[in-house]
Simulated assay, not measured.
Amino acid sequence: MSDEHEAEAGRTRLASALIANGSLTTDWLAAYNAAPRHLFVPDTIWPGQADGVRQGEAVDRETDPAAWWAAVHSDVPLTTQWDDGNHTGADRGTMPTSSNSMPTMVFSMLAALDVEDGHRVLEIGTGTGWNSALLAHRVGSENIVTVEVDEGSAADAQRRLAHAGYAPTSVVGDGSEGYAKAAPYDRVIATCSVGRVPHSWVEQARPGAVIVAPWGPEYGGEALIRLTVGDDGTASGRFVGSSAFMRLRRQRSARPNSLTYLSSPRPADGIRSTTGLSPEDIGGWLEMFAIGIQVPRAFPLTERYDDGSYTLWLHDTAVTSWATIDWEPGCTAYEVVQSGPRRLWDEVEAARHWWDGQGRPAFDRFGLTVTPDSHTTWLNSPDNPVPLQG
């Protein structure tokens, strides 16, 4: 089959799948057809899984065109860069740093953005340029500003956009600063995740504007937030579903390894106890989100062993406190060791019990209010803030 026929057949198959799952709606179908995904995918890619977290082996268009086309027309994310471009070649690098996002997520985010004719849109994270092209087709290139921190990615995306017939304003810069020169905007969309919504995005948006961004706490878990900007310099709204994106570069956090917290071999000065709460019951994406919004400035790491058991480590970002929980198959009680001014396992356990007590709410029952000085997560309504355990 020729590239032209494969592009058409694959695009049709993917469209059918996206329409069937409800992410691709009729108002975005014309943009989908006019700006096909394959025009915005480089020759070497690492197809991922639907969870957006795991990447497979490299696929090269020149050496395996069938696999490349199959990946492009699959509903999976495609990693396109490792280690901020410092890693080259087909081998996987240490950290994925750019991708062509999972199509279901792309169109779900665009649906949440709810653009209208004439809207001015600020996009944070140009990536490969596909999202920019879809937006440009919908509201016109003259109404799109897209910001990309990586010079190489920005240049490649600009070339692809021009080849496809689109010319949004492309800016190389720090996305956390937005782009004040072209403000105000009616819509802001981020294709990278944040732990704090940069207030520049709020300041550069009109009252009533919508901001859509992946948001997640330090601990883990992530969801898509849809904020409406008020006329008082604040923004508030609900989470609309799960997400998994690479972090905004300025907000990446350095995570020390477990040895950094120990002055002598574990348990060192740790206090021992036992718990009936299994580490297996706090490792889901939603569970991590619910815990993370209650337990600030903390994160987990897992140390796995050959026999299938593992140790869950909890650390605080201030490098003052740690905790471990040992999991073994078949156990119903688990050994806990805690050290430092924070009792991190106690905080995590209390957070999980709070979530249980609220009926295990899903992402869409949570919301976020952003002011110049604070971020407040809430359950059901802004007047019901989520308690902090730490």
Results as ranks from 00 to 15, higher is better:
61 R>E: 05
62 E>W: 11
64 D>N: 14
64 D>I: 05
64 D>G: 03
65 P>C: 02
65 P>W: 06
67 A>P: 04
67 A>L: 10
68 W>G: 04
69 W>I: 06
71 A>E: 05
72 V>E: 07
73 H>Q: 14
73 H>S: 13
73 H>P: 05
74 S>M: 06
75 D>C: 11
76 V>S: 11
76 V>M: 10
77 P>M: 12
78 L>V: 06
79 T>I: 04
79 T>F: 09
80 T>V: 03
82 W>C: 05
82 W>M: 08
83 D>Q: 09
83 D>N: 15
84 D>H: 15
85 G>S: 13
85 G>K: 08
86 N>V: 11
86 N>Q: 13
87 H>W: 09
87 H>C: 09
88 T>F: 11
88 T>A: 11
89 G>S: 14
89 G>V: 14
90 A>T: 14
91 D>Y: 12
91 D>E: 15
92 R>Y: 00
93 G>F: 07
95 M>P: 00
95 M>F: 12
95 M>C: 05
96 P>H: 00
96 P>R: 03
96 P>Y: 09
98 S>A: 08
99 S>P: 06
99 S>M: 00
100 N>L: 00
102 M>C: 15
102 M>W: 01
102 M>I: 13
105 M>R: 03
106 V>W: 01
106 V>C: 05
107 F>V: 13
109 M>L: 10
110 L>F: 06
111 A>E: 09
112 A>E: 14
113 L>I: 10
115 V>R: 09
116 E>Y: 01
116 E>C: 08
116 E>S: 10
116 E>F: 07
117 D>Y: 04
118 G>T: 03
119 H>K: 05
120 R>N: 04
120 R>Y: 01
121 V>T: 08
124 I>S: 08
124 I>D: 01
127 G>I: 02
128 T>F: 01
130 W>D: 03
130 W>M: 06
131 N>Q: 13
132 S>I: 11
133 A>F: 05
134 L>S: 02
135 L>R: 08
137 H>N: 00
137 H>V: 00
140 G>R: 06
141 S>W: 04
141 S>I: 03
141 S>Y: 00
142 E>C: 00
144 I>W: 00
144 I>E: 03
145 V>N: 03
146 T>L: 01
146 T>G: 12
149 V>E: 02
150 D>C: 09
150 D>I: 14
151 E>T: 13
152 G>K: 10
153 S>N: 13
153 S>W: 10
154 A>K: 04
155 A>V: 15
156 D>E: 14
156 D>W: 09
157 A>E: 08
157 A>M: 10
158 Q>K: 12
160 R>K: 03
160 R>V: 01
161 L>F: 09
163 H>A: 12
163 H>W: 07
167 A>D: 14
167 A>Y: 04
